[in-house]
Design a protein around this nucleic acid. Structure first.
Length: 723
DNA sequence: CGGAATAAGCTTTTT
DNA sequence: GCTTATTCCG
């Protein structure tokens, strides 16, 4: 450590300090650091440790632009940069001459795996045989494109259930992110689709090809292309040479593909620091695998060191007692037990209520009572297993005019009008993106799939979009809109067109179409577009706006309670997944019953039940002072279809065993809830009888890649060859 | 050919 | 309840 250690180092505990100052400063602006794994239990100052690590490195002379900081969201990256900047400012003896004394530290390479991948791929595009202006498809765009091909290949017409587009995409994505063969993935996760193995492979292969003709990459492609790029020693060396330090947050949620990328960037682990908590791994459905963090050390020779943070600064001890009791039932984990630095407090409560309506009442009563004692709404959160669970509560909050913001369950980006406007921008950005064009054209009155396709064929033959469009005939009903579209294309189509004002220009064009299609709802939808317009202003370019938006869409939709403003106080509603990394004074967890915790779809295998346990653990450990688990005795069976015979709702969560119950207050008399069998297996889906399937022998035009430079790695070919 | 109306299926979590 | 596929009418 330097003789004049910054004062903030003293505020850290010994383990944190060890992690922050890991490695040997060499005096020339570099720090030599062996690989390190930091196991940071919930609330043990993980963010603070990472932020201080960054600050410390910068203070040793490391160039912030040479630090790669992988986080799980854009927001987390910004928060990290802000806190690192804060720490640095403090050690700079205020009044100093150093440049960024106030505000966030500039960390150009802080972001998610996907965002970093997009940036690197654009930078190295020509060496990789990629179009540097590629678009990024978000999940639903990807599903739509896949669906198009599914349709072309004739699968939508089959009577025996061919998997839906979302299922298809989930299968492909899981296989790619875990690197496992399709058949194994199907057998493991989608056994009812095994009969479609060959068809799916053909579908995925055609999908990979189509994305290339459209010059688009989906989420998985970003990682796959990054991995492919790293397979070339020279490019790998170039990329690795950009960074002296690689810090990875939430390492427990990395998948095989991501772990491989890190290994390729730093084969010896030099400068690599992984931070995470195996007890909070909750993304297995996305291919994340807890084994990566459990075996992180062994991939290096000598094995990586490990530092464990157990001192919890967030919660009162009774909350931790409950969480610790829950995890004591878990099998695989680095042994640890959280200890509160804060001391005693109220025991968490298990509240048994009659039904979901009573649950909503109880939560609102509790929230208001907390506010009376001075806890603002913003410091309180209601968490749930899946997005619909807050429905009753939302209705009730709206009725009582209590403002709230809901995170998770991405509805905003899926709204038709939002997608329309973004499709216009995407089409301008990448005229080869025919899916965007297809969507835009069909906004016009009198223009359906057939006409749109014909127009797109014409456009494909032209270099400039505006030129192509002027060659097409407008549908009679849309002449004015059509002319306006051509004018718009001419104005904002060229890549060098100024970004400022483009979004408004698109909205101006779209507004009449919006009013025509949605008559009554137009005003609400126009307001959504205003929200988006405000966001657009914060990005420097169209490309950046579109990419960032696809990779990290706004997670909150606030139209229900009358969009709360930034400075206003509002209650937080969130899925447990979206609550990752956050904390509040008071936390309510809805529907803690068997069927939700664990979810009824996850009761098949032991490892998925363990993941559900961790999910409840994450929910509990968000709470600083008060925690309440709510257990409705019955669910309103309003629109429950017939399959719901064996509905497991109402049974006590299997995670609330005697040891956990002992840490809870207000436990009702035993047996009250245990009259339903808690262990029903998920219903077997009848295997589809082999139906004769028409093979439309989709003619795939060979994709041509004309790039100025000769690519070193043909990433495109590698992406196609996966299937 | 486009678009509205009807019928049938399917429901977790998200970068 | 929602989305998606098919049918039918202008």
């Amino acid at each position: 450590m330097t003789p004049s250690a910054p004062p903030w180092l003293n505020r850290l505990n010994p383990q944190q300090r060890a992690a922050v100052t890991w490695g040997m400063p060499r005096g020339d602006g570099r720090v030599q650091a062996a690989p390190l794994l930091v196991i940071a239990g919930a609330g043990t100052g993980k963010t603070a440790t990472l932020a201080h690590r960054v600050a410390w490195l910068v203070e040793q002379g490391v160039d912030p632009a040479r630090i790669l900081l992988i986080t799980f969201s854009r927001r987390a990256a910004q928060e990290m940069a802000r806190r690192a900047g804060q720490a640095l400012a403090q050690s700079l003896d205020t009044g100093g001459v150093c440049p960024p004394a106030q505000g966030a530290l500039q960390l150009p390479w802080a972001g998610t795996f996907h965002a970093v991948a997009a940036r690197l791929l654009r930078l190295h595009a020509s060496a990789l045989g990629l179009d540097s202006g590629f678009s990024v498809l978000d999940r639903s765009d990807a599903a739509d494109l896949l669906d198009l091909i599914r349709h072309e290949q004739g699968w939508s017409a089959t009577r025996s259930r061919f998997p839906r587009k979302d299922t298809c995409l989930a299968i492909a994505s899981f296989a790619l992110n875990t690197g496992r063969p399709l058949r194994e993935v199907l057998a493991h996760g989608w056994p009812w689709c095994l009969d479609w193995h060959d068809a799916l492979r053909k579908l995925f292969s055609a999908y990979a090809e189509r994305k290339q003709t459209h010059r688009v990459l989906d989420f998985d492609d970003l990682l796959l292309a990054w991995e492919a790029a790293l397979s070339d020693p020279q490019i790998a060396a170039q990329m690795a040479a950009r960074f002296d330090h690689i810090l990875v947050d939430e390492y427990q949620d990395t998948n095989t593909l991501q772990a491989g990328i890190l290994r390729a960037l730093s084969p010896q682990g030099e400068g690599l620091m992984a931070v995470g908590d195996d007890a909070q791994s909750i993304y297995a459905f996305r291919g994340a695998c807890i084994d990566h963090i459990l075996s992180f050390g062994e991939q290096f020779d000598p094995p990586a060191q490990r530092i464990t943070l157990q001192r919890n600064y967030r919660s009162v001890q009774p909350v931790l007692d409950c969480a610790n009791a829950l995890m004591a039932g878990s099998t695989q984990a680095y042994p640890k037990s959280l200890q509160a630095a804060r001391g005693p407090g109220a025991r968490p409560v298990l509240a048994t209520v009659a039904d979901e309506r009573a649950q909503a009442d109880r939560v609102i009563g509790g929230v208001l009572a907390q506010r009376e004692t001075g806890v603002p709404l913003k410091e309180q959160a209601v968490l749930f297993r899946n997005a619909q669970h807050s429905e009753w509560l939302e209705v009730e909050l709206t009725r009582r005019k209590i403002p709230f913001v809901k995170h998770g369950g991405l509805r905003f980006m899926d709204a038709a009008h939002v997608k329309d406007v973004l499709a216009v921008l995407r089409w301008m950005q990448q005229p080869r993106d025919a899916l965007a064009g297809f969507r835009v054209l069909q906004c016009l009155p009198g223009m359906g799939p057939a006409l749109a396709e014909r127009a797109l064929a014409v456009c494909a033959a032209h270099e400039r979009l505006s030129a192509g469009l002027s060659q097409c005939a407008s549908p009679p009903a849309a002449v004015a809109h059509w002319e306006a579209l051509i004018a718009l294309t001419r104005d904002i189509g060229p890549r060098e067109a100024r970004w400022r004002g483009q979004f408004d220009a698109v909205c101006d064009w779209y507004q009449p179409l919006l009013e025509r299609r949605y008559r009554d709802g137009a005003a609400v939808r126009a307001a959504d577009l205003q929200v988006l317009a405000a966001m657009a202003g914060h990005f420097g370019s169209r490309e950046q706006f579109l990419t960032e938006l696809a990779l990290d869409p706004p997670s909150a939709s606030g139209d229900l309670a009358g969009a709360p403003y930034r400075d206003e106080d509002y209650l937080i509603l969130s899925t447990v997944h979206s609550a990752k990394g956050q904390e509040w004074d008071a936390v309510w967890v809805l529907n803690v019953t068997d069927g939700n915790f664990p979810n009824e779809y996850a009761t098949g295998a032991a490892h998925s039940i363990e993941e559900e346990r961790r999910l409840l653990y994450v929910a509990m450990t968000r709470a600083r002072n008060t925690l309440e688990l709510i257990e409705p005795r019955a669910f309103a069976v309003t629109h429950q279809p017939r399959l719901g015979d064996r509905h497991v709702t109402g049974a006590r969560s299997r995670f609330l065993n005697a040891a956990v119950l002992a840490t809870l207050e207000g436990v009702p008399s035993q047996g009250a809830l245990n009259d339903v069998d808690p262990c029903s297996t998920p219903p077997a889906v009848p295997g589809g009888a082999a139906a004769a399937v028409a093979d439309s022998g989709a003619a795939q035009s060979a994709t041509e890649h004309r790039q100025s430079a000769v690519p070193r790695v043909d990433v495109a070919a590698r992406l196609r060859s996966r299937w």
